[in-house]
């Protein structure tokens, strides 16, 4: 520091520790609650000494909340969104930055219009779309009166219904959430900073576009990809509204949604120890990802600002 301010320095550490304790308190408290038997957790105030029922509560939450199945669903959904977004946006950004073609501007503008609109503001129509992916074709079919033409050709009345529902499926959980241009935008920004000489040199050495993409662009983007993996994994794992809407079968539910059934209702026995044990288990994967990949994550998060 610039000058010596012992009082302020002490205060700094005091406030800092107080801040960390306040921010960490809900979790610390939940961890303690998750180790207690029900008699202790429903005492007011709850004892602050951890008990020995942790594994019992975890097992109870696992069985009662069907967490094995739900965690698997969450994992598939989060990885699917992460992988899908990164692949789609890497290819898209490559096309937009390294090629010149007639519809490039149209494509660019139409993709980046989607930049900020989250699923939350278009839930109902997106749900209808997921209920029948072929809906638009059906509309086109009706618009062109193809029913009539087909009936005329076949000689008798035929009614066509096109239906392909992705409700209650992994495709349905994953695909609509891939439709966002944030990653494409970030990769585009990054590709623009890559020196022109690299591309020229690659071309001079006779590399094709895809070779350049595979051998030069992907390795250069490694840190960005790592950062986006963390951000998108956390985003996918923590999705709430969309999985709530499109899953009706219990075995397709994601872990975050499933937890709701563990919360004790007003006239139930207050099994908060089980509910909190389950919550800790479900929040663990994204928390671990963030903690272990902290460096890339912070970089990626702050990079988004630009």
């Amino acid at each position: 520091m610039v000058e010596k301010t012992p009082i302020l320095d002490t205060l700094t550490y005091v406030f800092l520790i107080a801040g960390i304790i306040i921010v960490g308190f809900p979790i610390i408290y939940a961890v303690i609650a998750a180790t207690l038997p029900i008699e202790d957790v429903s005492r007011v105030p709850m004892p602050f000494i951890p008990g020995d029922q942790f594994w019992v509560n975890i097992r109870e939450a696992w069985v009662r909340g069907d967490l094995g199945n739900h965690l698997l669903n969450s994992f598939i959904m989060a990885s699917g969104i992460t992988l899908g977004k990164i692949v789609v946006s890497l290819l898209g950004a490559f096309s937009i930055v390294y090629f010149d073609y007639r519809f490039r501007t149209v494509v660019f503008v139409s993709v980046f219009c989607t930049l900020m609109l989250p699923v939350e503001v278009r839930i109902l129509p997106t749900y209808e779309m997921a209920a029948n992916l072929l809906g638009p074709l059906q509309e086109l079919w009706r618009f062109l009166h193809l029913d009539g033409i087909v009936s005329w050709i076949a000689g008798h009345e035929i009614e066509m219904t096109l239906e392909w529902s992705i409700l209650d499926s992994y495709t349905g959980l994953i695909m609509p959430l891939i439709a966002s241009a944030t990653c494409t935008f970030l990769f585009r920004q990054f590709f623009l900073t890559i020196p022109e000489e690299l591309c020229e040199a690659a071309k001079m050495d006779g590399a094709s576009a895809m070779t350049f993409f595979r051998k030069i662009l992907i390795p250069l983007s490694k840190t960005n990809i790592a950062a986006l993996v963390v951000i998108e994994f956390v985003y996918g794992w923590n999705q709430y509204l969309w999985p709530l809407l499109i899953t009706t079968k219990p075995q397709m539910m994601t872990a975050v949604i499933g937890l709701q059934h563990l919360i004790p209702a007003a006239d139930d026995l207050p099994y908060w120890n089980v509910a909190l044990a389950g919550s800790l288990l479900v929040m663990l994967p994204p928390v671990l990802v963030v903690l272990f990949m902290q460096r890339w994550f912070v970089k990626g998060l702050v990079e988004r600002e630009k």
């Binding site: 956390v234 923590n238 975050v256 929040m283 928390v287 990802v289 963030v290 903690l291």
Partner: peptide, 9 residues
């Protein structure tokens, strides 16, 4: 940093 990873729900 880790509360960032906790789902709102």
């Amino acid at each position: 940093i880790w509360p960032y990873a906790v789902a709102p729900a």
